[in-house]
């Protein structure tokens, strides 16, 4: 069962496409990291999933329904927007009440306990909270509705390193307790790699890579050998990136088979290098670039 199914999904603002040809599935119960540079289309995708935006083309199913279509659908998805917006004039207690009054499955005891463990004063106005506290309040609100899908848009980008760590540790803890599907975005892989078991890499409004972290790591190999044309790879090896020095060629390939060519020295690749390789990829596939044009 998939929590999110996108098929040819696209979103256009005026004449600019923020997201195009997005086809992917997010398995239920997974923790998905959505990684990409600023402006890669991450926020657009998450806003579509939360029902805040309508697709311009393609289709999107979230938990079997159209996002934001009715109150039941809205109640199933918890969303924390970028910079964790809260009402500055309302107190922490008011926010809990807001959650309780607008969500049928509200977990009052859980929300109260979380606020207590965070050390937040219920009478404090939300406008006076620090960035980290605000994020935590917004997360408490999103978790309090006991969502089946939790969507977090850049939840840690505005936080200092310590608050980042605390926040992500909290997300992991919540996962253990309730087990909703979680999708969180970041422009930094380091934020998500400790918590996520699935990965979506986006660049320039398109999905570059999607899959489970373990599978992706197992399928990608770094091959190093004497200089050669990277176009001469076996069919089952999909070239991701190639680089050449005067005598050596290094290619990153995706394959499910073993590497048979004895000329290659095969090594595994770390998640960070893997993600960077896909984030760097331009829309024009590198396999079509002639060898001489590749910078060494």
């Amino acid at each position: 069962m998939s929590a999110i199914v996108a098929d040819g999904l696209g979103k256009r603002y005026g004449r600019r496409w923020a997201l195009r040809e997005c086809t992917l599935e997010v398995p239920e119960g997974s923790v998905v990291g959505l990684v990409g540079a600023n402006g890669a289309g991450k926020s657009t995708f998450l806003h579509l999933a939360a029902g805040l935006l309508e697709p311009s083309e393609g289709s999107l199913q979230v938990l079997g329904g159209r996002p934001g279509s009715d109150a039941t659908q809205l109640a199933k998805v918890g969303f924390v927007a970028q910079d964790a917006p809260v009402y500055g004039g309302l107190s922490v207690a008011d926010h809990l009440r807001l959650g309780a009054r607008t969500n049928p499955g509200w977990d009052e005891a859980g929300a109260q306990a979380r606020i207590r463990s965070l050390g937040l004063d219920l009478r404090q106005r939300a406008g006076k909270l620090s960035g980290g506290q605000r994020s935590q309040l917004a997360l408490t609100l999103a978790m309090g509705k006991r969502p089946e899908l939790l969507v977090l848009d850049e939840p840690v980008s505005s936080l200092d390193p310590l608050a980042r760590r605390t926040f992500l540790a909290d997300v992991m803890e919540l996962m253990a307790d309730h087990g909703p599907t979680v999708v969180l975005s970041s422009h930094l892989l380091s934020d998500v790699e400790r918590v996520c078991d699935h990965l979506i890499v986006m660049a320039e409004g398109r999905v570059q890579l999607v899959g489970s972290v373990d599978e992706l790591l197992a399928q990608h190999k770094l091959l190093t050998g004497p200089r050669r044309d990277e176009r001469l790879l076996p069919r089952d090896q999909v070239l991701v990136r190639a680089s050449h020095t005067e005598r050596q060629t290094t290619v990153l390939v995706r394959t499910t088979d073993s590497i048979l060519d004895p000329a290659w020295v095969v090594s595994d690749i770390g998640l960070e290098d893997l993600v960077l390789a896909y984030m760097d990829r331009r829309v024009a596939a590198p396999t079509e670039t002639p060898l001489s044009a590749v910078p060494s």
């Binding site: 934001g68 039941t72 109640a75 969303f79 910079d83």
Partner: peptide, 14 residues
């Protein structure tokens, strides 16, 4: 203020 993203993602339709 961006708070519409908070209000419109609760269990209440816009």
């Amino acid at each position: 203020m961006g708070t519409h993203r908070l209000a419109w993602t609760q269990g209440v339709t816009r």
